[in-house]
Design a protein around this nucleic acid. Structure first.
Length: 498
RNA sequence: GCAGCUGUAGCUCAGUUGGUUAGAGCGCCUGAUUGUGGAUCAGGAGGUCCCCCGUUCAAUUCGGGGCAGCUGUACCA
């Protein structure tokens, strides 16, 4: 009863899996995206932007059903009763764009695009419900040269970002080879269960990295129980069949020619497999011709990519270095992007099949990797000079000082609060301001301004113990004539900063 | 989705064997030391002790059920 009356206040909080991005990351991210775009444009890809949400049926097969209108994607109803969804990748909007404007577009159509995408899934460490992707796609080209080009461009791109040769690798495979393997062990592609079985096999192979060979073999067969006792159903292959698939999976390693030779012995006995192998060999030839050796691009049968819609070549870019993260634990960045050929996507709209291939970079992961490497593009942006608001009557004059600095290309701001000088100094310090401009009564009487170098002041103050000395020493500051303000600030900014 | 662990101030955590105004450290705000970032001192803001139901004279504390977070696993177009 006597309890303090509470007004219900909203909690200041962000929905799970979302995050705010502050200045440092925003700036570096912008520069990074700029570099990627520069590389992509130099290879002839044209930038495109599309809206954040679209009609749900235009985005793909994830039509919201009555029970779970938001499974996987974020969806909502338009006022005319049509479902809309936030995009979950940049490929589906591209397919829509191409189908909608097909007649007006140059063919092949080469587009690059970056932007946020949204997935309504359980977030985890480093995994958010909103994240940025950067895609490059060629639509309307059946040639493997288009696929090979994406792999080579990715290598260029990573190097331009400062990731050195040897610290990354692009891995290439071809879906048709695995399909050939499945045919050779007696599966029938026209069988109703084929797609389910193939998906289970793809998922099993995809876990090789994390779970190891034995687990993959279990998943190819009956299934596997994990540590928590949870059971994952397998693909249902018998041990001979599983053995053949494992032979395919283990055909990787070493030079591209060696991998091709090994794969040949596994799949050469059927058409589908041979076709995939030929495609892979052709791409390998293009890598050779382009001068992209196996220190940059390798053939790797374990690359399957989860996506069902890939129809031919698939590729993945991986960072291969380890680095120690917080607490000295080794951090492996792993895959930072992938892609492949998807000849069926545009056909959903057009009826006729239009060949396409693309590559998508997971920008947040790439950013994290560059951050750990200390290779974030540095903008050299420094914090603004702060003009202290010493006297409320003189704000006009303070604005003029800041204006003079800005006109000379120096970031500058007048303190906009109403606090005392001490708090203003604290503010400038917390902002990281290089220096503050002080024009109080004393300076004004002399026609001067005081300029204090905050970095230098911090250095000097480390040697000061006594409070009186601290307050009266006023280190690292000079008074200059008002007209010399700009020149003096320039001097301070020109000093080497640690 | 499934399993395990955890929910007390912005953060890290005490505490209440059920009892009146729930605490600390750090952080934040204001002031003092003649107009100066650190230090010191003084003051202040900030909590439905995750939510609901039950037991009880009395629940932040005990019981049940939710919800949320973390970790693993599954899914990931």
């Amino acid at each position: 009863m006597s309890k303090k009356k509470k007004t219900a206040r909203p909690k200041a909080r962000l929905p799970k899996g979302l995050r705010d991005v502050a200045a440092r990351e925003l700036r570096a991210m912008g520069r990074m995206l700029g570099i990627v775009q520069e590389v992509y444009e130099s290879w002839g890809f044209e930038p495109l932007d599309t809206p954040a949400f679209e009609y749900t049926d235009a985005l793909g097969k994830f039509l919201p059903d009555r029970d779970r209108p938001n499974a996987g994607v974020f969806s909502f109803l338009d006022d005319d009763g049509q479902w809309l969804s936030l995009r979950y990748d940049l490929t589906a909007p591209l397919a829509r764009h191409v189908a909608e404007h097909y007649d007006a577009l140059p063919k092949p159509f080469r587009r690059c695009q970056w932007g946020p995408v949204w997935r309504n899934e359980k977030p985890g460490p480093g995994r958010y419900r909103e994240f940025i992707q950067f895609d490059a796609d060629t639509v309307g080209a059946a040639s493997l040269a288009a696929d090979a080009e994406l792999c080579m461009m990715t290598a260029d791109c990573l190097e331009r970002l400062g990731i050195e040769r040897g610290q990354y690798v692009v891995r290439v495979n071809n879906r048709k080879i695995l399909d050939g393997v499945l045919v050779s062990i007696g599966a029938d592609p026209d069988d109703a269960d084929f797609k389910t079985m193939r998906l289970a096999v793809l998922r099993a192979i995809d876990k090789l990295d994390r779970l190891g060979k034995d687990a993959v073999r279990d998943l190819l067969g009956a299934g596997r129980k994990d540590v928590s006792g949870d059971y994952t159903r397998g693909a249902g292959l018998d041990s001979t069949q599983a053995g053949t698939v494992m032979a395919f999976v283990e055909a990787g390693g070493g030079a591209r020619n060696e991998v091709l030779a090994r794969l040949k012995s596994v799949v050469a006995n059927n058409d589908l497999g041979r076709q995939g192998l030929d495609e892979l060999a052709a791409m390998s030839g293009l890598f050779d011709a382009g001068g992209y050796g196996q220190d940059r691009i390798v053939l790797d049968p374990t690359i399957v990519r989860g996506l069902e819609y890939y129809t031919g070549p698939v590729f993945e870019a991986e960072l291969t270095f380890d680095t120690s993260g917080d607490g000295g634990k080794p951090v492996r960045f792993g895959s930072i992007g992938g892609g492949g050929r998807y000849d069926g996507l545009v056909a959903r709209f057009k009826g006729t099949e239009i060949p396409a291939t693309g590559f998508s970079i997971g920008v947040s992961r790439l950013y994290a990797a560059l951050d750990h490497l200390g290779k974030l593009p540095d903008e050299g942006q420094i914090a603004p000079v702060v003009v202290l608001a010493m006297d409320a009557e003189r704000m006009g004059e303070y604005q003029q000082m800041a204006g003079e600095l800005r006109a000379a290309g120096i970031r500058a701001e007048v303190y906009m609060g109403t606090s005392a000088m001490r708090a203003q100094m604290k503010y400038a310090d917390r902002r990281g301001a290089p220096c503050v401009i002080i024009e109080g009564e004393d300076e004004r009487a002399r026609g001067e301004v005081t300029i204090k170098d905050l970095a230098e002041g911090a250095r000097l103050s480390r040697e000061i113990e006594d409070n009186a000395q601290w307050r009266e020493g006023r280190p690292a500051q000079v008074s200059v004539a008002r007209k010399d303000l700009l020149a003096s600030v320039r001097d301070i900014l020109a000093r080497p900063r640690s």
